[in-house]
């Protein structure tokens, strides 16, 4: 008999302060990563304070650790936030479906992330970068409310080093600092100005609902992306992650098991319950 609710303990290898209120935590189990696929998520907990659901933000190909990014807000995340390097985090997973890379191979890729929604995008994006030759042109568009709200600031340059890869970082108007050299503008607006074509391309979009809504519109209507080639992830409230607790239903879909990764086409068939 196996207790599906029983977590494993993972050690905190590194804590990266991303913004004033978000962090990325790198974990290891027995010195390495676990088997997961980009887009999947796990239940992370500071034991005693409860579990919290986060998507993985690292590439599974980077075997020395696995990571997630989070903002401290509730009881569980505040607990996690208080931990130090070397402390243990309880972890269950990986759960859910994943970005199907077989359908992305050989195509041009567009990664669009907004705010902390960049975390799952980063996972698949770095996965693709790690196997750079399998894909066509890669465009990365990442935006946040302000310069201070941008995650992963230290590694933008790393992304840029890959061949045939364009990295565009933008902040919402008013969120720029005097020394800001990136773009200023909302993500969907900046996206629209990019010379992208839907044909033979896959777009991966994740961020706040309003950003997703407009980004999908731009991709579909202005750039001609096919709905089945636009992929996003849903962030419903979850508890078990195992399709039991009844919380994450959207229509007939259990987001924790049938998702969290959906194509725009799949989303279209779901009722507005997320």
């Amino acid at each position: 008999m196996e207790n599906i609710y029983l977590p494993k303990l993972a050690e905190i290898k590194e804590i990266i302060q991303e913004t004033a209120d978000t962090k990325t935590i790198r974990l290891t189990i027995d010195g390495g990563s676990i088997d997961f696929l980009p887009g999947q998520f796990g239940e992370f907990s500071f034991i005693g304070e409860g579990e919290s659901t986060f998507g993985f933000s690292s590439s599974p190909l980077r075997k020395e650790y696995f990571e997630f990014s989070f903002r401290s807000s509730g009881r569980a995340t505040t607990g996690i936030n208080s931990l130090n390097q070397g402390d243990k985090i309880a972890f269950r997973g990986p759960y859910g479906n994943y970005f199907d890379t077989s359908k992305m191979k050989g195509k041009d890729l567009v990664f669009v992330g907004g705010g902390i929604g960049m975390a799952p995008v980063k996972s698949i994006m770095e996965y693709c970068l790690d196997e750079r030759d399998d894909y066509g042109k890669i465009t990365i568009l990442y935006g946040a409310r302000s310069v201070g709200d941008l995650l992963y600031k230290g590694i933008f340059d790393e992304w840029k080093k890959y061949k045939n890869t364009e990295v565009i970082i933008t902040v919402d108007p008013g969120g720029e600092t005097p020394d800001w050299t990136g773009k200023v503008g909302f993500v969907p607006t900046v996206l629209e100005q990019l010379p992208l074509k839907g044909e033979n391309s896959v777009a991966i979009v994740c961020g706040p609902p309003i950003m997703i809504k407009f980004a999908l519109k731009s991709l579909e209507e202005k750039m001609g992306f096919d709905k089945s080639n636009i992929i996003t992830t849903l962030e419903n409230r979850m508890k078990c992650g195992l399709g039991k607790c009844g919380r994450c239903n959207v229509g007939s879909v259990y987001v924790c098991k049938d998702g969290p990764v959906f194509t725009a086409k799949e989303l279209e068939s779901l009722p507005n319950d997320f």
Partner: peptide, 12 residues
């Protein structure tokens, strides 16, 4: 009906 919640409770 079988929906449930998961919570931790205890002390230090």
């Amino acid at each position: 009906c079988h929906c449930f919640d998961i919570q931790d409770e205890g002390n230090l």
